[in-house]
Every structure is written in C-alpha cells, then in structure tokens.
Design a protein around this nucleic acid. Structure first.
Lengths: 218, 218
DNA sequence: CGCATCGTTGATGAGCTTCAAGCAAGGTGG
DNA sequence: CCACCTTGCTTGAAGCTCATCAACGATGCG
C-alpha cells in the first residue's frame, strides 16, 4: 500500500487522512469490468493487485485498448471531464483495486496542498503518457512499437520493485496489437523475430528480456 | 476573453480573482516557440488569438505533432507532471496567449472550489482528447483519420462561435500528416479525393465542408 | 519580383493486413 | 482422470494500403 500511486510525497499525518478516505477495496474477476464507458463517474481507483486494461469504443463498434494498468497505478481519470467514464476498465487477471471517492478526494485536495499537488501530477502524468503513446502509434514501425512496449512494461515493473527482465504479460496478443495499432498476427511475428534475434525469450504470456540494449536499438 | 477555457463555471466575483492572476499576455510570432520540450514549467496558457501546435520529439530526432490548439483552448498542461515541459508549443500563425502562473493558480484552486473543479476538468478533458486521438491513430484508415480530423476542427470552431463549415487550417500538410500518423502526400491525396467526391472544397489551407454527413460516413 | 516553401500528382514497392490452417494450453464435464 | 472444446498463439501465402521517390505547379513572403 505504501507503494501506491497516490501517497507519494505525503506526510504520515496526511497519509492517515487519505487512508480514512479510501473506504473500500473491490475485487474484479478476470474479464470483468471495473467500470464501463458511459458509467457515471464517482471514484478513481488504484490497482492493488493484478492488472487491468482500459478500452475505448468507436461509435461503429471497433474497440481499441488505450491503456494498461499494473499494480500500484491509478485508474479512472477518464471520467473527470464529463462525470461519465470515457473508457471501460477490464481486469486482465483476478485483481483488486482501492476505491477513492472523488468528492471526498476533492475536499482533501483543498485541505492539504500536497494532496492537491499529487492529484495534479497524477493527471499530468497521464497526459504525458498518452502523448508518448500517440508518438508510438504515429511514428514508429511495428518492430519499434513492440520494442517500445516491452521496454515500457519492463521499466514500470522495475519502478514497482519487480524484475525488469522477466514478467508475465496478462494481455493477449490481440490486446497488445490493439494497444499498438497493429494486428495480433503482426505482434506474434514480431515477438518471434525478436526471439530469433536473441532479444527476448517468450513462452506465451511469460516474457524475458535477454538483450535490453538490443531492444532499445530496434 | 469570456469565451476562454478557464472561466467556465465561475461566478463574476471569482472571475475577477482569476483576471488579476492572469498578469500578462504574450505574443508569439508564426513559427516561434511559446515553450520548448525541456523548458522549466511555470505557467499554463490560453490561446487568445491565432493557433498553435504541440510537438513531441523521439530521442532519435523524429518529431510528431501531438496537438492543435485554437483560440480559447488551453496549453501547457504537459509540464505539470515533472516541472518540465514534455512537448514544444509552436505558433502556426502570429498568435497571442494569456499566461497563467501555475503557483498562483494552485492557490486559487484551494481558495475557490469551482476553480479547482475547472482545473480538474481541464486536465481530464485533455486526457480524454488524447485517448480519442490514440483511437484515431490506432484503429482508423487514412481516409477515416482525415475525415475525423476535419470533423474535430469543425466542431471546435463551432463551439467557439465560428463557422463549422468553413475555416483556415494553418497547419501544413506535413503537420496534419504528422498529427494523423501518415505522410503529407497521403494527406494531400486524401483531401483531393474528398474534393472529387464532393465532401469538401479546398484551396490550400482554406477548407470548406460541403457534405458534413458524407464526411461522417467515411 | 524572385526565391523558398508548400501542395499536388504519378509510379513503384515495402510493410503490414487479411485469410487460412494447424498447434498448444487450459478449463470442463462425463 | 482423460477426452473434448474453447481460446489463444504461431506461421504461411496473397493482396492492399500507404510510404517513398520524383517532378512539377502554386503560393506567399521579403
């Protein structure tokens, strides 16, 4: 819980106030939705265990994965602008989340300036992360996209104290393709090629990064 | 000034406080940077006249346009997350912006809850807008991307009280291509095809939408 | 008015998608 | 407990969209 996205930069005293606010947790089964696009927005969330994806739908029904959230990362900010969620959040594996009621969080932000600061940074981080993903989608080749994605997940794992070299990606190839703007077949072929080149070692969803620098130079 | 992004939802009294805060304006010549990636972040901006683009650079030097800001829209939020701007903002034509010092804005947000509300919405809107652009880049064909872009600009013009059917896009074909993840040649060809189909009428940067529904159905 | 920038259009081919088939893994019920 | 079925992954072949290279025309700024 100390590792979570919200508390960073708060004093012990302030942390306590935050903890009284996080009144509840919720578990979400693999495949189940934490919230759906169009649902009324009233809380933001922090992934406590497991992982989730966010998905956005075009009016014609086409869906795209717009984000991946690992344990410790924040979720649900897509609802702030409209009081209605713009994405759906689906569990990639059995997961639990902390629920942070937004109205209460807003008051806390007014009381405690470091809480306000943290809130702004959280929103700002997502803005930058999404802009970076726009770059990936708009400028990189298939190989570069897959490499960038693996490096991103690796770094986020490292930041949370897990192995940066080895992890279980609970997304399917189709999810990865959707997130990276390509087909599942291209993802699969790219991973196979990376493996032949000695960059990674895959067994289904388990991925080990063998040559980090090589991957950076793709 | 009443049309601006910030004031929405504030009382006259609160508006006055905001106005004392916006201590200055600045003019930016066409092609000049309002801020550059890596610059220290200390203010957010509102475009008062003209238009700007935001640009993000990959480490290998490749650049991509990540956003277009018309008069009345907010700018600079990419600096909040780590006190340094993640993008550069360049003027597409001679423009002026209002400067809103971030530290002062933060205090104001603590004083006035509707100001805090507005700030959160501003950040949230950008998050949703960028997620929508990720969908465009990841899921749509070239034709669909161009159509979506024209419809987006059209709608934003309408919201600001200008014509939704006719406007001057100050971006070059290359800017549009970069924003839409395609080459300038493909943008040009697509616009030509739209013109032949009777969807739009272009003369260089001047664009008139002839068949709005047709464009929606692309 | 001249020059640089921007836009258009054509020809060619690379890179990715699509379609298809087979294989591996994991969960379920008899 | 194993056969069965579903779901996900891999790989191949063919085709299409879009990028690239190139040439020329239009525009507009100093």
């Amino acid at each position: 819980m100390r590792q979570l996205c919200m508390p960073q930069g708060l004093s012990p005293d302030e942390l306590m106030k935050l903890e009284t606010l996080i009144c509840s947790a919720r578990s979400v089964q693999r495949g189940e939705a934490l919230y759906r696009s169009g649902d009324r927005f009233d809380s933001i969330y922090a992934v406590r265990s497991g992982s989730m994806k966010t998905v956005m739908a075009h009016r014609d029904g086409r869906e795209q994965v717009t984000g991946l959230r690992l344990a410790g990362e924040a979720l649900g900010l897509d609802g702030i602008s409209d009081d209605v969620h713009a994405c759906s959040a689906l569990a990639l594996e059995d997961s639990t989340v902390c629920i942070v009621p937004y109205t209460a969080l807003k008051s806390l932000c007014r009381e405690i300036s470091s809480m306000q600061e943290r809130m702004h940074k959280l929103l700002g981080e997502q803005i930058v992360r999404e802009a970076a993903q726009m770059m990936v989608l708009g400028s990189l080749s298939a190989d570069e996209r897959v490499a960038a994605f693996l490096l991103d997940v690796s770094e986020r794992n490292a930041r949370r104290g897990y192995s940066s070299a080895e992890f279980n990606l609970r997304m399917t190839r189709e999810d990865m393709g959707s997130y990276l703007g390509m087909t599942l077949e291209t993802v699969s072929r790219t991973l196979s090629r990376f493996q032949k080149r000695g960059l990674i070692d895959t067994h289904g969803k388990h991925i080990r990064i063998v040559d980090l620098d090589g991957l950076r130079q793709v």
